[in-house]
Amino acid sequence: MNNLTYRTFKDKLFFYLICTLASLTVVPLFAIIWELIQKGYKQINWSFFTETAPSTLDAMLARSTGDIIPGGIANGILGTLLMVIIAAIIAIPTGILVGIHLSEHPKTKFSNITRFITDLIQGSPSIVIGIIAYTWVVKPLGSYSAFAGSVSLAIMMLPLIVRSTEETLKMLPGSLKEAGLALGASYTSVVLKILLPSAFGGLFTGILLAISRVMGETAPLMLTALGSTAINWDVLEPSSAVPLLIWEFYNDPNLIDMIWSSSLFLLLLVLTLNLIAKRIARKWKIQ
């Protein structure tokens, strides 16, 4: 009997232990968000989204009078959007086609090598990918550019899209492909008109996650996009990005306040994309 009480106690103890540890994992996220909101909300106003990053002098003057720092991060937001869009244009079609190949011919030697390389790219430190984009794009073009930044981001997105495409297509029942072929459809039209639309939810989720993954990348952009103080629409010119701006603000004691607002913005953007991706994944789940 005594033994039983002891075992029940042990059970309870274990249960509460895992509950405590599980709830501990949410603490950092909420702590970060709380801190960012507290320190950053003041800076987030209309000009935060419409004006370029302030100069040290303006920031210093504002700080001395106790005002909020003027200006915003419009150059960074535009740069991030431009680079992510171009990266997506490069990575999405390529990634989906590679994913189709991997799911259709899963056991060939070529597929195994491709899968292995995809894993390697996914595991590569992002700074290394930045260096590669530097030698491939910046050097030949002779200038740092938003385009070079996009190439490095595209390389980082690729493995995520490839694997999510492969996994989603694998989940589709084989009967779907048979049904299409049995109607005399060509292999291409079965893939494009039946398999891909049926896998839409999974593909879209993978793409959103890949985008949110690269949105906060800093290291590869330092070597490729470099940064810019002006709003820049020319993709062949150096460009700023939100994470690059955060790094710049960190290096300038007068602009420290801008770190919090920019980080808050970036974090919320990435979290929103993640949440949307989860929603879509649930809604379009393959039956």
Binding site: P173, S175, L176, E178, A179, G180, A182, L183, G184, A185, S186, S189, V190, K193, I194, P197, S198, F200, Q287
Partner: peptide, 23 residues
């Protein structure tokens, strides 16, 4: 086939004419 396998992304209408569409 053994199990009914209508195309899940298509309407009833489109399923019937799927053979034409796919070809």
């Amino acid at each position: 086939f053994q199990r009914p396998n209508p195309f899940p992304t298509m309407s009833i209408f489109d399923n019937v004419i799927a053979g034409y569409k796919l070809n």
